[in-house]
Design a binder for these strands. Structure first.
Lengths: 120, 120
DNA sequence: TTGACATGAAACCAAAAGGTTATATATAAT
DNA sequence: ATTATATATAACCTTTTGGTTTCATGTCAA
């Protein structure tokens, strides 16, 4: 399924700290809903809603086993996040960009460098 | 500033598509508010609020030049996101984990493999 | 100095998000 | 068969979010 066909996108799904903690718990091992919700101070129903949102983002998937529903992590959609991030990595790796920002901000340290160069 | 001291965290800041587009525009070059908002169908005030949220997350910074306020990208906080992501990369790289999920899901393809091994 | 321009700030609004409680259904255990 | 367990679903509530409009302020240009 394409990312645009997802009802909830990955960015929105991971924005909530509770959902990120749910993902972390499921990264350890698959778990039924009740076991997940035992880790939080909020109701099982609230956790169930979070799992629904994570399911829509295809970050988790649950299967019924007896009367339990066991969820496991599906990390694939995180590749979309990784791609998005990779675009910005050039900026924090790129010293020239940082220098450009110093110039734009009229940073004092830069003026000192300019003076040093003048008299070296 | 530590990430916990930030009023808006990076995850929440990038959750909104408009804010991600603002970041992309500022990745190209620094721009005043009016130029940014010209790219969107919503009001300048709305964009101003998005810039406020991005500023709180320290993803952008603005300086006043005459009557304009010129914003530029500050990508550093995205390293937090990168760190978070790196934890999950092990999962989509790890074939054993994928196999584990096949077992858990009772995937038919796995049963065929099991049969093949039995009679090889 | 007067008007136009760029932004800031406040008041307001509708919808979405994140939570609750109550009720229903399916499965397991006695 | 009856009861307990695990989850699903619906109705509801409060706060936050993303937007609006209106008005104020500071700066540039004529």
């Amino acid at each position: 399924m394409s990312s645009s066909a997802r009802k909830h996108d990955v960015f929105q799904a991971i924005a909530d700290p509770t959902r990120r903690e749910v993902l972390r718990l499921l990264a350890e091992k698959e778990r039924p809903i009740s076991e997940i919700s035992a880790h939080f101070p909020i109701s099982r129903t609230a956790i169930s809603k979070h799992l629904y949102i994570l399911t829509e983002a295809e970050l988790v998937s649950g299967r019924k086993v007896g009367r339990e529903k066991i969820y496991h992590l599906q990390p694939e959609p995180l590749t979309e996040l990784k791609q998005w991030l990779s675009f910005y990595e050039q900026f924090w790796n790129n010293k020239l960009i940082k220098l450009k920002h110093l110039v734009e901000d009229g940073d004092e340290r830069l003026k000192i460098v300019e003076n040093n160069e003048k008299y070296e």
